[in-house]
């Protein structure tokens, strides 16, 4: 059964900004599903609509088999929502935050107190439980956010960029939490702009770009669509990228070429055979190659072929992109 069904969702803001231009996907019950894309792609808007916080301009969405527009109350009872920006009340303690959250889900008494203690323990917040959240580190606030999202044992949990802004250590703690939650049978929809995160955590994912879904499937399916290897080439002379692109496109070994700035990515059937042939062809055309590398297709390449641009964000420091483990 599908825990989330989204059909042709559209959202146009006042002023004509089209945040969503027809998004459709389904998340199976008990699955971890990731929406992957850069800032402004429409991930958060999608999640906000599914969490009943934002009204769609058109389209239909059902969560836990209730319509988000016509049955928002039913939806709210069954979801946990952890926003991109923390929702912690910093003037209150961790325990107070959790208790109020539980009370709003109509939990009370010993049951609620027990659940609060349980979550404080689970998320390693017990020692800080009675301190104002103002004194918490970023990672602790994030864990408190997730704990609040779970207070009522929801059927579906939305995690909007759960690790953005976290240091690597807190990130790996969060990944561990997500994996543990997934084992508990919870349906999890997470958004991320880290390819690595989607690859590591999600059973299936959809790549969102410009308010549309440009590719969807399991990480392996998506990578499998890119047969062979990827040769990436950087020229010594930056002005001659177009000439190099023409050479690569005309080559028998090459199935497709993507250009990102001064870098060219060529999809080839067999990397070890193609590299010398491509270098030879470039040399023959009088193009000096500064750097060449060969890789198995990764989600970066999936992203690249799906969107036509490489995965990086303008103006964002390189450190903000999760390091990729060697594959």
């Amino acid at each position: 059964m599908d825990a989330i069904e989204v059909e042709d969702l559209r959202k146009t803001y006042a002023g004509g900004v089209e945040a969503l231009r027809g998004v459709s996907f389904a998340v199976r019950s008990g699955e971890v599903f990731a929406l992957l894309g850069p800032n402004g792609a429409g991930k958060s808007t999608t999640v906000r609509i599914l969490a009943t916080l934002s009204a769609p301009t058109a389209g239909r969405a059902r969560v836990a088999s209730f319509d988000v527009v016509s049955q928002p109350r039913e939806v709210r009872r069954r979801i946990g929502y952890v926003a991109q920006a923390s929702g912690v009340d910093v003037t209150a303690t961790g325990r107070e935050n959790l208790t109020l959250q539980g009370q709003l889900f109509r939990l009370s008494g010993a049951g609620l107190r027990g659940r609060v203690d349980e979550l404080l323990d689970l998320f390693q917040l017990a020692p800080a439980a009675d301190r104002p959240a103002l004194t918490y580190s970023g990672g602790m606030r994030r864990r408190l956010d997730v704990a609040m999202g779970l207070i009522h044992r929801p059927e579906v949990l939305f995690l909007d960029e759960p690790t953005t802004g976290l240091d690597p250590e807190s990130r790996s703690v969060m990944w561990k939490e997500v994996r543990r939650l997934a084992q508990g049978g919870l349906t999890l929809l997470l958004t991320t702009h880290y390819l690595e995160e989607a690859d590591q955590l999600a059973q299936r994912l959809a790549i969102v770009d410009g308010g549309r879904i440009v590719a969807a499937g399991t990480p392996d399916e998506l990578k499998g669509k890119l047969r062979g290897d990827v040769v990436s080439v950087e020229l010594a002379d930056r002005g001659r990228t177009a000439a190099a692109e023409a050479v690569l496109r005309g080559h028998d070994e090459v199935a497709g070429v993507m250009v990102d700035g001064t870098r060219l990515y060529a999809q080839v059937g067999h990397g070890a055979r193609a590299v010398p042939a491509l270098l030879g062809a470039l040399e023959k055309a009088g193009l000096d190659v500064a750097q060449v590398s060969l890789s198995r297709p990764s989600l970066d390449d999936v992203y690249l072929t799906a969107t036509g641009h490489a995965y990086h964000e303008e103006g964002e420091p390189a450190a903000a992109v999760a390091p990729r483990s060697g594959r």
């Binding site: 916080l53 926003a83 923390s86 929702g87 912690v88 009340d89 959250q101 889900f105 956010d145």
Partner: peptide
């Protein structure tokens, strides 16, 4: 302040 801190959205996603 609640809107800016994300508290309102968190509350609105509950059945409150």
């Amino acid at each position: 302040a609640d809107i800016d801190r994300g508290v309102l959205d968190r509350l609105l996603a509950t059945p409150v």
